[in-house]
């Protein structure tokens, strides 16, 4: 409108020179600065991968509950891990100290490692019963033959079965937290149902010391 009005009134050719009207240029540098400042702030203060938790249920300390029947069950099909600083030993079944009255051969600790060829293979071999059952149930679940809740229930049953492997985890004074967690983790991977983190016995400690000093 204003332009039109001026054209009408002026009449003269090559009159007042007006600045060229190109696209308006805005200096964006401060905005970019601010943008990157905010970006840096958010990058540095944020956390993405939220840590997860691994739950572990400990046996109750209640003295009223008799522990005897549980012990009997355990010895049939049990494996005991003894964790020391970065090293892992195990023995199967019950512990027999040297020169025991029952006339059984003394327990020997076998060394294994935390890797896939060590403890994982060992547990997979020992816990075949549950793992086979798990594969069977997994297949059924995939073919939608059973529901999720039945799957869970049957898995728990399988883990509690007499045939299922029971594991005791004992630690000595030098064990690191990582070692312990690693063992528990492997137990979960191998679908072990009964996990008992218990105190190390004096006789076991003595045997461990002997084995370590070899």
């Amino acid at each position: 409108m204003a332009e039109l009005a001026q054209d009408d009134g002026g009449g003269k050719k090559g009159g007042k020179k007006r600045p060229k009207k190109g696209p308006a240029r805005i200096d964006m540098t401060p905005m970019v600065d601010l943008g990157f400042l905010l970006l840096t702030f958010f990058v540095l203060t944020s956390t993405f991968a939220k840590p997860k938790v691994m739950s572990l249920v400990y046996p109750a300390k209640d003295p009223d509950i008799p522990e005897q029947p549980k012990q009997d069950q355990l010895v049939n099909n049990a494996i005991t891990f003894i964790v020391s600083d970065g090293r892992l030993f195990y023995y199967k079944g019950e512990f027999y100290p040297e020169g025991n009255t029952k006339g059984k051969p003394a327990t020997v600790l076998t060394e294994t490692d935390f890797g896939p060829t060590g403890i994982r293979k060992l547990l997979a071999d020992e816990n075949k019963f549950v793992l086979r059952k798990k594969t069977e149930l997994d297949g059924k679940l995939q073919r939608k033959q059973i529901s999720d809740s039945i799957y869970k229930k049957q898995m728990i049953e399988a883990k509690k079965d007499k045939e299922a492997l029971k594991v005791l985890v004992k630690t000595d004074m030098k064990a690191k937290t990582k070692n312990f967690i690693d063992v528990i983790d492997e137990l979960y991977i191998a679908s072990i149902g009964v996990i008992a983190p218990v105190d190390i016995m004096n006789s076991e400690q003595a045997l461990l010391d002997k084995t370590l000093n070899k």
Binding site: P51, P59, A60, T177
Partner: peptide
């Protein structure tokens, strides 16, 4: 902590168990 002496952690666990709180969760990265 990964490299904490387990005895110290165990001590804390025992404290929980003394209070009859037996269901514990360990923070781990997945």
């Amino acid at each position: 902590a990964m490299d904490a002496e387990y005895v110290r952690v165990k001590n804390v666990i025992e404290t929980f168990r003394d209070l009859n709180l037996n269901n514990l969760n360990f923070v781990t990265s997945q």
